[in-house]
Each structure stands twice: as C-alpha cells, then as structure tokens.
C-alpha cells in the first residue's frame, strides 16, 4: 500500500493554499510534515482525510484492500474533538459506530483501545474530568477504533506533559511496528527526529524539500564542535569553520570535524587541564527547517490554511 498525492492544488478565494503538492508515502512509514504557521499542512491533511473535497490533483491509495480511503484512514485533529460530558468509553463507541463497528466487536475494540491509550481504569469517567494529556490520548484512541491503515496526526502533542508525550510516542512506535502508516504534522523538530523516517518541509503551499531525515541533516545542517574552558582559540580554527561565542564556550560550525578537534587538542596538549569540555554537537532538524524556511515570524500571514 502506498499513498500517492499527485499535484494537489487548493485555493481559498485568491489565495493559493497548496501549489501542486506531490508526495509518495510508503506503507509503514512515519512521515513527518513540517512547516511554519499557514504553510498549508492542515489543508493537505484535510485533503488526505477527505474533509476537503474540492481541490485539484489526485490523492490515491494503491493497495489490495477493497475498503474506501475513508475506511482506511484515522484522523487525529489538532483540536480535541471529544464529547466532554460523555465518558471515555462512550466517546470510543461513538467513533467506532461511525465506522460501522457494532455489538461485541465494538465493545471489545473499545476495551483494546482503552488499554492501548492507558485509560482502562478511567473508562467510565467523563472526559471533562480528564487532564490535557488524557484527552489527547483519547483523541488518538478515537481515531484507532476502526484499525486504520493510515493514521493522520495533526500536532497531537500540543500542550501536554512530558509523560503523556512519551506515552504517545510509544503508541506511535507500536502502531508503526504493527504496519500502520503515520502522517505526522508538527512544529516540534525533535518529535520528527525521534519518530519519523521521512519528512517533507512545506512552505507557502509548496513542498520545498523532502526525504529521509538523516539525508536532509547531512545535506543541510552542518555539525558543530563545542569547546569550553578556553580563553582564546587557535588561529587556524578560523579557516576551518564559523566560530560563535556560545554560553560559556565557543561553538565552531564546520564540515571538518576531525580537523577542528585535532587542532584544539594539539593546541592544548600541554595545558589539557584548561580544556573543560570538547564535544561534537549533532546537527538538528530545526537548522534544516530554518535554512529552508527562513527565520522570519509567520504569525497570521495567512488565515485558513
């Protein structure tokens, strides 16, 4: 099974929310979708989830199943879409019924999902009594009721505590192991690094880069060396990389890691006690993101997307 998004375009009035977006999402992948506010992420997710129907281009699911695209997709929206006055299990029943689950199957599946999301002891409690993290987990659980092959998650960890975030990450990893394909939209780069195999950067309605996370890091982000305890750096380092004062040390951004470290170690061979810390700083996806999208604020540039 592969999800093909082919030259998808979407306009809101005169504004182009998506300009010919094409993606191929393979089975079992955790695919990150990253972009600034108003970049077009949510519009793309809504198109994949068949919420937006009037768009140009094609979204095709190539598989052997007879089920429709909607039957195979579970959608976890950014908002917490739960009935606050109903219990956790009633919410799960509701979403299960929307996918035609009935009777014993519905009940047993709801119990399975409650276990998966860690709310089995709170099954009959009203959602309004839940913490933010519990609501987020239930929000995901509702999308899992019909055992979707593809799970679309739109910023599923916004505003939750680290424990719940970790729990959600474990759930995602388990789902992926079970063969579920995950499309994960987020602003948090560390989440993409931790969870996703592949990532697409979207900006101004266009995919500006996509590929495997490691490959993008190699292509766009330069590693650095952090050195602490030195008052002055050897002059040779200037030719080897960009040096910036950073906290209580120096950060040397370079493609010649070994040469930089050798130079530092040689320079301080006799005064090694002055060298308090020397470490390689791994490049971050956030650097790739900033490189690709720039560092300007994007708040409210475009509504609706």
């Amino acid at each position: 099974m592969v999800l093909h998004i082919n030259q998808v375009k979407k306009e809101y009035g005169n504004k182009e929310a998506l300009k010919s977006v094409s993606l191929v999402i393979p089975k079992g992948a955790c695919y990150g979708l990253v972009g600034p506010n108003g970049a077009g992420k949510s519009t793309l997710l809504k198109i994949i989830a068949s919420i937006i129907l009037d768009y140009e281009g094609k979204v095709r699911l190539i598989n052997l199943s007879n089920q429709s695209l909607k039957q195979q997709i579970g959608y976890v929206p950014q908002e917490i879409c739960l009935e606050q006055n109903l219990s956790a299990i009633s919410n799960l029943y509701f979403f299960g019924k929307l996918y035609d689950l009935k009777g014993k199957e519905l009940k047993s599946r709801a119990m399975e999902v409650l276990k998966e999301i860690g709310l089995i002891d709170r099954a009959k409690d009203k959602v309004k009594q839940f913490s933010g993290g519990m609501k987020r987990r239930l929000n995901i659980g509702c999308a899992l009721m019909h055992r979707p092959n593809i799970l679309i998650m739109d910023e599923p960890t916004v505003g939750i505590d680290p424990q719940s975030r970790r729990y959600i990450f474990e759930m995602i990893k388990q789902l992926q192991q079970q063969g579920c394909t995950i499309i994960y939209a987020t602003h948090y780069m560390e989440e993409v690094e931790q969870l996703c195999d592949e990532v697409a950067f979207i900006d101004h309605g266009e995919i500006i880069e996509q590929g495997r996370v490691e490959a993008l890091l190699q292509r766009y982000a330069t590693p650095s060396v952090f050195v602490k305890g030195m008052k002055e750096l050897p002059e040779q380092l200037i030719t080897l990389g960009d040096i910036t004062r950073h906290k209580d040390g120096y950060l040397i951004t370079t493609n010649q890691l070994i040469a930089v470290m050798e130079t530092i170690l040689q320079h301080y061979q006799e005064e090694s006690d002055k060298l308090l810390r020397l470490e390689i700083v791994r490049p971050r996806l956030e650097d790739v993101f900033i490189t690709l999208t720039g560092s300007e604020l994007r708040d409210g540039q475009r509504g609706h997307v």
Binding site: K70, E79, L98
Partner: peptide, 13 residues
C-alpha cells in the same frame, strides 16, 4: 468550532 464536524466528515458517512 470544536473540530467535531471536520472529524465526522473524515468518517465514511
């Protein structure tokens, strides 16, 4: 406004 309409629209109904 709560997102429920969109979420239901993603279901096969």
């Amino acid at each position: 406004d709560s997102g429920m309409t969109a979420r239901i629209a993603s279901a096969p109904i």
